[in-house]
Design a binder for these strands. Sequence first.
RNA 1: GGGCUUGUAGCCUAGCACGGAUUAAGGUGUCGGCCUUCGGAGCCGGAGAUCGUGGGUUCAAAUCCCACCGAGCCCA
Length: 648
Amino acid sequence: MISENPFAIFRNESESILIKAMKNFLPQMKLNNLQLKKPPNIDFGQLASSICFGLGKTLHKKPLDVADSLVAEIDSSYFDLIEKVVSAGGYINFHLNFSKFSTLTLLSIKQLNKEYGFVKTRLPEKIIIEHTSVNPLHPIHVGQARNPILGDALARILDQRGHSVFRHYYIDDVGRQSSVVAYGYDKLGRPQPNEKSDHYVGKIYTITCCLVEIIRLRKKVSKLELCSSSEELLKANTVLDEWLSIREELKQKYPSLYSALFEKIGSEINPDEDIIKLNLDYENGSPDAKNLVRSVSELCLKGFKETQKRINIFYDSWDWESDLVWSKKVINVLQKLRSSPFVYSDGDVLKFNSEKVAVSLALKPKLGLREDYEIPSLTLIRSDGTTLYTTRDIAYTQWKFSQAEKVINVIGMEQSLAQLQLKLALYALGDQDYADNFVHFAYNLVSLPGYKMSSRRGHYITFDEVLDEAIERAYKEVSKRSPNLSEKEKQKISNFVGIGAVRYALIDVDPSKPVVFTWDRVLNFETNSAPYVQYTHARACSILRKIECQPDNQNLSLLEKKLEHELILSLSSFPDIFLEAAEYLKPNIIADYVNTLADKFNSFYNAFPVIKAETTELRDARVLLTEAIKIVISNALALIGVFAPDRM
RNA sequence: GGGCUUGUAGCCUAGCACGGAUUAAGGUGUCGGCCUUCGGAGCCGGAGAUCGUGGGUUCAAAUCCCACCGAGCCCA
């Protein structure tokens, strides 16, 4: 017999046995959720019920006595995967018949192989996952790197669950910042970069920002000097000083690019005006502006794509915010919103009353909000007539729903309010179905110890730097450990080891927790890291390579050591872990699971011989166990985008 | 001022959605042991925790509820 979820068969059997016993024991009793849980120690069995504690209370008996009586009602003639059911300390413990269960589990894994664990949904959906969406102004930095790693893992998981997943990248090219880089790039004469293009664009952005900011602040200061508002003057001077010191930094770091830009921009009187004009022209779709802004953005995206290729992340669709504006989708949505009772004018500003939507549709409990919390309004149009990011995002979200049933946005949790308002806007537009299937997958920030990352100020560590460093470190390790490998092999290994380590480190922690970036965290090659798991996989492969062919009828009841039982139990739980990760969008539990599995296998490996087992029958059984472990490690790693090597 | 997120050994993390077991689970660092055994990126053992604080609910609280404190972010 084969099962896609062996442990679930045991769980179902245990549940129905317990229900049957309960019916005999207390016929009138209404059963509501008898959730069986895994006991803390395998010696207590593999599933346990704590139902007798509650029953003890209502029956005025000791839980232990209730458990004894209940167990007495259990009919062992129905047992299949169950070996015995015992009462212990008030609990009812279900023990597996490992001889049968090992066979079921290991043969299922061997047969399903690359498909094992990936239980398919009965209700496949079209799902759009928007992730990364870094503005095309500067390279992707460590603070942002958590996003593509999480988004890609989610996509892989939901894909394996049987959904049709589309990965979208939203290119925010409409804001003022895009015009700032474009302005700088234009002043330079629109050259082709002689370095990685997103890094080049990032430098132009930072230097241009700085120069423009200084000109603006100087004007402000001299204006303030005329009227005698000393407090404001002091404030402006402090900010100006800060930018002047950033300018010194930039001058040191990028001397030639700095002087080229300074020469063109330093003497300008009002660069802001040009930038604002460029921005307006771009929004209006003027060909010159289009040509300029798009060429800078494309340059930056070219660099992003190179980085993403390194870590094997790709997108099905690149969505330009500007396309959305030019296609009038934003205007159309605004018109529709205006005709709803939830939009009002506050002077020249157009606002969306999020609170009113939530109250009139009684959405607060559904959204997990307190009744007395008043949701702030969202500004849709500024007094100068321009739209805001979230306004355009409403149109974008509607467009996404025109081609998918579910939308998952992987966006930092600092955007929580905006994402909530966006959801409420969908309700206001009458698209309740969209709103219900709109998910903000929020993750906490990655920060650098000591200072704040700021892309405008050029204070960041790029994702490329992190990857380079990780690969270099891995190269040193490989050279140390396997000096006889060819240069080509060393490079190949250091590549998947370094990149695996980075991916693992960024996915391992619960997304809602803040992470402080340290090199130690990312460059860990020991226990609880991708290289550790990869090594374990290679180790299992190495054993399997040494075995010629194996018979089809192993006697798996010979696997009777506690470690072997724990391994089989762990292997059989992989489908459950996968389902939990898919259902609750928790990619980190996959990393956790595969590390624990590798841990157990390494303990087993040290304690018991496989190839040189006492008998050939035992050897064959352990070989099959090893093969199953290899398969499950490989399948789990695939979900988080980490390569499972045969050798390293 | 309001809201969201977060607080577990020196450091990093798991467990919290769904409350349960003698001993709160890993890693790192630290102390000690294992290379004539299938790959030492390994294994085994020791020391190290008032689960932020205080209340409450419960037979049972790291887990649920309330208040407060610290950190981060968002809105005003």
